[in-house]
Design a protein around this nucleic acid. Structure first.
Lengths: 191, 191
DNA sequence: CGAAAATTTGACATGACTCAACTGGAGTGG
DNA sequence: CCACTCCAGTTGAGTCATGTCAAATTTTCG
C-alpha cells in the first residue's frame, strides 16, 4: 500500500502523520482474470488503484453489445466515477483482463480523508483535470480522424495496452467492429 | 461578481473573509458577439464563468473544418483547460455567439487561492468530476447511438442551447454535417 | 490433440459525407 | 419599397467509410 502513498506523495507532500492516516484506510485486494471489480447496476463504493494487472471498463448497449470505455493498467485508477459520486447504480462494468492486484479506498473513507487531509482534495482535483482533458481529446479524435488514424495513435499512445489486450477489445475501445479493425490492420501490413 | 461567489458558496461554505479574498481576484468582462475569449495557439491564462450570453469552444481540424467541442451558457465555465493547466498553447478557440458577460479569474490567482482557501480546491474538484462524467457519457452516446438519437437527446438535454445556436453548429457538436442533420430533421418532421 | 476463442476474409448493406444547386429569410443600400 | 446580397437551411445524386453476416483460418490453452 506504500506504493500508492508514494505515488500520491509525488504530487502533494505528506507528513508522516498524514501518510499513516491515509495508509490506515487502504486495503489490498486481488482479483482473478475475468472477475469484476464492479458491475453495472451496483452502486460503486470503492475506488481502485491498479498495482498490477489489466482492467477494462465497459457497458452493454440497448442491443446487448459491449462497448469499452477505457482500459486500466498499473498506476491507473478505476471505478465508475459517476456511480461513486452520486451513489446511484453504475452504468459500467469494471472487469479484470488478467489476474490483478489493486489498492482500494472506500468512498466513505475518501470523503473523510478529504477533511482530515485537505491536500488530498488537490491530488484528486489534478488527477481528474488530466482525465477530463484526455477524455475531451478522445472526443476530438473520434470526430476528426478516420478509424485507421485513431488505431495508429492508439498503438503509439498505449503500446503497453495494445500488447496486453485482445484486438476485438481495442476495436471496441476505438468504436469500430473487430472485422473492420482487422481490415485496417491488413491494410497497414500491406504498406 | 457576487453572483459567482454565491454560486460557489452553494457547494462550499465561505466565511466573510474568504468571500472577500475571492471577490478581490475576480474581474468582470464583456465580449461582443463574435469575439474570442481565447484562441487556438495562445496560452490560456484565465478561466471564465458565463454570467450572460452563449459561447462555443471549437477547433479546426487538419483540413480546416470546424468542430465544436462544447457550448456554454449562463453559469457555465469556459476556457481551454488543457492549456490552462499545462500552460501550453491552446488547442481550442472559445468564441462568443452572443454579446456575453463573464466573470474571470486568472490561473495565477486561482492557484494562490487554492492555498489561501483550500475549500476552493474542493469546489473545483467536484466541478470537474461532474464535467468528466458527462464527457464520458458523451463518448458513450457517440459510440452507441446513431446521429438521429443523439440529436433527439441533445434537444431534450439542452433545449435552451438548441434554441440559441444555429443548426449547423449543433451538427458540428454532434459530429455530423449540417446537410445530414437537415435530413434527420426532415425525417423527424415527417413522423 | 481438440475445442473454444480470436482473427481474418469476402459479399453485401447502410449511415453519413461531399458537392452542387436551390430556397427562403434578414439585412442593406439605392 | 424594391433589388441585391448574404447566410442558414434544405434537397438530391453519387460516393465512401464502416457495419453486418457468414464462413474460413489461426491461435490459445485445457
Amino acid at each position: 500500500m506504500e506504493v500508492l502513498v508514494d505515488h500520491i506523495a509525488k504530487t502533494i507532500s505528506l507528513t508522516e502523520e498524514e501518510r499513516s492516516q491515509l495508509m490506515s484506510k487502504l486495503t489490498n485486494r486481488r482479483y482473478l482474470k475475468g472477475q469484476y471489480i464492479g458491475q453495472e447496476g451496483d452502486i460503486t463504493r470503492i475506488l481502485s488503484f491498479i498495482r498490477k494487472g489489466t482492467v477494462r471498463t465497459f457497458y452493454l448497449d440497448a442491443s446487448g453489445s459491449e462497448h469499452i470505455i477505457s482500459f486500466g493498467i498499473e498506476n491507473w485508477w478505476v471505478g465508475d466515477l459517476g456511480s461513486l459520486i452520486e451513489q446511484k447504480p453504475a452504468d459500467y462494468n469494471v472487469q479484470c483482463l488478467e489476474d490483478t492486484e489493486v489498492i482500494q479506498i472506500s468512498n466513505e473513507d475518501l470523503q473523510s480523508l478529504y477533511i482530515t487531509i485537505p491536500k488530498l482534495e488537490r491530488f484528486f482535483r489534478i488527477l481528474i483535470e488530466r482525465a477530463y482533458v484526455s477524455t475531451q481529446k478522445r472526443i476530438v479524435r473520434k470526430q476528426s480522424l478516420p478509424a485507421k488514424e485513431r488505431y495508429i495513435l492508439f498503438l503509439e499512445h498505449y503500446p503497453e495496452i495494445a500488447s496486453r489486450v485482445p484486438q476485438y477489445m481495442i476495436a471496441s475501445y476505438l468504436g469500430i467492429t473487430k472485422e473492420f479493425l482487422s481490415q485496417i490492420r491488413s491494410q497497414i501490413a500491406r504498406t
